[in-house]
């Protein structure tokens, strides 16, 4: 474990706590893409298949359980909670996320560390996570003004993988045999997808103005 990865995991956890706070405190999920949340739940379920077979550390196991439980709870809430589901921007959340599923799965069949069930699904989860934010970014552009908590949620979500890039650089310097090309290249793509969001987030922070994404 290194400071970059620990900060990355904490940033990821903070983003999830912000989303849970928004849904719990406002009983609303306006501006949140259910499709992105469903993709994240799938990312965690397919990535943490080794939850019961490979014990790495208490920290690792606890964090995996937290990520799986929180992502499923958010999807369940957005689908079934009477107040929350009513605030879901169904008509704006129209990104065809099934294409992201198919593309990630096909790529995982081609590019993986080992052609084994768990490894192909692990690679699938890495590719899927890289593009899972797309429905959310499209929804933000369509919904115009972004409420504060939603903006913070997306910011921390983007920042976590950027910190992981520093973690991979650090691990590579420590041990040149450390090569995680699949995770690293996907992490770069994932972070790049946030580039314009980060730009408008920075502008709104600098001008102390409301976060506005151009349509």
């Amino acid at each position: 474990m290194n400071i970059f990865r620990f900060l990355g995991d904490m940033t990821h956890l903070i983003s999830i706590l912000i989303l849970l706070l928004k849904i719990y405190a406002t009983k609303s999920c306006s501006g949140i893409s259910l499709k992105t949340q469903e993709l994240y739940a799938l990312v965690f379920l397919t990535r943490y298949l080794d939850l019961f077979t490979d014990f790495i550390s208490v920290y690792n196991t606890v964090m995996k359980l937290v990520f799986i439980a929180s992502s499923l709870a958010i999807v369940w809430c957005m689908r079934n909670h009477p107040l929350v589901r009513r605030s879901y921007d169904k008509q704006l959340d129209t990104f065809r996320h099934y294409f992201l599923l198919l593309a990630s799965f096909l790529l995982a069949l081609l590019l993986h560390e080992k052609f084994a069930f768990q490894e192909v699904l692990w690679a699938f989860s890495i590719y899927l996570e890289a593009v899972a934010i797309l429905p959310q970014l499209v929804l933000l552009q369509r919904s115009g003004n972004v409420d504060n908590l939603t903006g913070q949620y997306v910011f921390f979500l983007g920042a976590y993988r950027a910190l992981y890039i520093f973690n991979w650089i650090y691990r590579y310097f420590i041990d040149p045999h450390f090569t995680r090309w699949i995770a690293c290249v996907s992490g770069l793509v994932q972070t790049a997808l946030y580039a314009d969001f980060f730009y408008y987030y920075f502008i709104s922070w600098k001008n102390n103005a409301k976060l506005q994404l151009p349509a």
């Binding site: 990821h12 790495i56 995996k64 995680r180």
Partner: peptide, 10 residues
């Protein structure tokens, strides 16, 4: 033969 690489990252 490199041992099965365990994914130690989240």
């Amino acid at each position: 033969e490199d041992e099965d690489e365990v994914h130690d990252e989240l």
